[in-house]
Design a protein around this nucleic acid. Sequence first.
DNA 1: TTCTAATTTGCAACGATTGCTAATTAGCAA
DNA 2: TTGCTAATTAGCAATCGTTGCAAATTAGAA
Lengths: 140, 140
Amino acid sequence: MRSPEELTTAFRAAGLKVTPQRQLLFTLMHNNSAHPTADSLYAVASKQMPGISLRTVYQTLTDLTEMGELRTIEVGAGAMRFDPNVSDHHHAVCDVCGAVQDVYVNQAPELRGLDGFAVADAHIVYRGRCASCSASVKRS
Amino acid sequence: MRSPEELTTAFRAAGLKVTPQRQLLFTLMHNNSAHPTADSLYAVASKQMPGISLRTVYQTLTDLTEMGELRTIEVGAGAMRFDPNVSDHHHAVCDVCGAVQDVYVNQAPELRGLDGFAVADAHIVYRGRCASCSASVKRS
DNA sequence: TTCTAATTTGCAACGATTGCTAATTAGCAA
DNA sequence: TTGCTAATTAGCAATCGTTGCAAATTAGAA
Ligand SMILES: [Mn+2]
Ligand SMILES: [Mn+2]
Ligand SMILES: [Zn+2]
Ligand SMILES: [Zn+2]
């Protein structure tokens, strides 16, 4: 996702308005590696802008996704997550704390059973324990 | 997933009753490679047993999953799918018709960015066009 | 056949998301 | 600077998939 400044220009160029709500969300998502849900982002945004609506958070995240600035990821159960990192990558979800981190694969694996299926996209979700949760287990 | 006969024995051994509803669902899921949702299974079950409730379908699928006879899979959006194939495998989802087919990977890919994350499980969802939908495109 | 714990059913409630609309406002033009 | 208006916001209802709950039913043991 581009910087808040670049997005401001891009929005205006597309005939969209740059509102205080949108500016706040631009800055909250820029370089955000937490893979937040709409609701968790709303919680953070509400602290800085009391009264912002969850509906607006959803709307802006959808707009940014349609513009290709964000990608959405589903990690099994729970709400949709939004990712400003639109490069080709995968995700690891901690079963203990729920944290989501980026994972890159070096070479695509060899497949069996494809049987004529034309693959356009692949997304891997790894599950396990993140580094800090693994450390907690050793300590206890 | 085991055969309806074996499941009958297993259920009784676990102190669970074998009802007509459960027997029907055992046979509908046995060797079922369609990866049905609860709702699509309910539609099929209703034809053979009018009056069966969606709630019972959910309940029985949950029971079978907890017993390890089924696994659940999430393929991005839409409802949960149930799979009697509990072997280690992945899925390809057709973006045109929604069909889900099994995919096996020969060797796990090399990962970057894991950074201490202890992987317990991986699930790959491929998206694209299934063989028959690819054929339709060529024809048109 | 009787008894009772397990099951089924229907419906309410839930969490995540989207549709709708009245009120507000960004940004352009005068 | 002011006025105009299309875009946006906020609030709330509605939707979808799923689960909680409780009354009625029933499998299967005694
Ligand atoms: Mn990511
Ligand atoms: Mn499968
Ligand atoms: Zn963790
Ligand atoms: Zn298809």
